[in-house]
């Protein structure tokens, strides 16, 4: 295997590793089999594992996720693909009302070990119904674990943890990162759910990021370092479980916090992070908590408009400068 792989290749690699390890892992989704996925994230799976393990479905998001739920309750570990995360709205009943609640409301009688994978986020000009960052939708629902990797190795490691989890995991793959490259995951690589990582150490300010905003924050930190401002970048990797301890430890070192999120400011996950830090880390702070999030509008199509709405390196750089000078 290559030393460097793309994020997109890592998805197929992570799935293949789990399918080789555990015969109860089955995949289902639109165009994932013979067509190998519209984003080419299931390349090779149908060829290696065949139609008994990789199932092409109709365009029926409720049937896809509902069937995954029924299969997960009865001995399989299904991995369902919802092509674009915007389409989660078509099967939201299962992700808001059924999957996260069935274990609880039956008094623990059943478990639902499934993964719903979906291509999330903007930056590619797909317009308002194929570009949203919707991780905050899921964060509003107790009972779902939420992973959103930023690197190819984390894709493999978090996918391993998600498939092996006895809890339902919503797995956000970022469309804007599919072509990005990074070191390949070592054999048996596993990143536990709920462990953030310091992607770049720094002393002056903590930047908390997730998925697509990690490379944005890293690029901003690199540029700022030339001016003597040293930002520490924390990659949350998961929203649930939320590793707020790693965030608080970082803020303890830097005393300043900027949160960079692709979902809209209104209802965005940064609000939860800010709330916890304000509540439990108030005395650590020397400045207000700031958030760079998407503008509270539908995501527009044209590049200049999309850039105006989404977090960018320039916006993060400006926000860091403002906070560092506070």
């Amino acid at each position: 295997m290559a030393d460097v792989i793309t994020y997109r290749e890592a998805v197929a690699e992570g799935l293949a590793r789990e399918m080789r390890r555990d015969p109860s892992v089955v995949c289902l989704g639109e165009d994932i089999g013979a067509a190998e996925g519209v984003f080419k994230t299931t390349v090779g799976l149908f060829k290696e594992f065949g139609p008994e393990r990789v199932w092409d479905t109709p365009i029926s998001e409720q049937a896809i996720v509902g069937a995954a739920m029924g299969a997960a309750m009865t001995g399989l570990r299904p991995v369902a693909e919802i092509m674009f995360s915007d389409f989660l709205a078509c099967c939201w009943d299962y992700l808001a009302n059924e999957i996260p609640k069935v274990r609880y409301m039956t008094g623990g009688q059943v478990t639902v070990p499934l993964v719903v994978r979906t291509a999330n986020g903007g930056g590619l000009g797909f317009g308002a119904q194929h570009s949203q960052a919707v991780e905050n939708w899921a964060l509003a629902v107790p009972g779902l674990k939420i992973a959103a990797p930023s690197t190819p190795a984390d894709v493999v490691g978090l996918l391993a943890a998600a498939v092996r989890s006895d809890d339902p995991v919503l797995f956000f793959e970022h469309k804007g990162l599919f072509a990005s490259r990074g070191p390949a995951a070592p054999p048996d690589h596993l990143v536990p759910l709920g462990e953030a990582t310091v992607a770049r150490p720094g002393t002056d300010l903590t930047v908390v990021a997730l998925a697509s905003t990690v490379p944005v924050a890293l690029a901003a930190a690199e540029a700022l370092a030339r001016d003597g401002i040293f930002a520490e970048v924390v990659d949350l990797r998961c929203l649930i479980p939320l590793d707020i301890r790693t965030v608080l430890e970082s803020v303890g070192r830097t005393s300043r916090l900027l949160i960079v999120e692709e979902n809209p400011y209104q209802g965005g996950w940064g609000g939860t992070v800010a709330s916890l830090v304000a509540d439990e880390g108030f005395e650590l702070l020397d400045a207000p908590i700031r958030r760079v999030a998407a503008a509270c509008v539908p995501l527009p199509f044209a590049d200049p408009l999309e850039q105006r709405v989404m977090p960018t390196v320039d916006k993060v750089t400006a926000a860091v400068r403002g906070l560092a000078a506070y």
């Binding site: 069937a67 029924g70 299969a71 309750m73 399989l76 009302n97």
Partner: peptide, 17 residues
């Protein structure tokens, strides 16, 4: 209606197993 796809999924599981 939510449980009809679940039943399909349980049937799928029984078939595969």
């Amino acid at each position: 209606g939510a449980h009809l796809p679940m039943a399909a999924g349980a049937a799928w599981s029984a078939k595969l197993r």
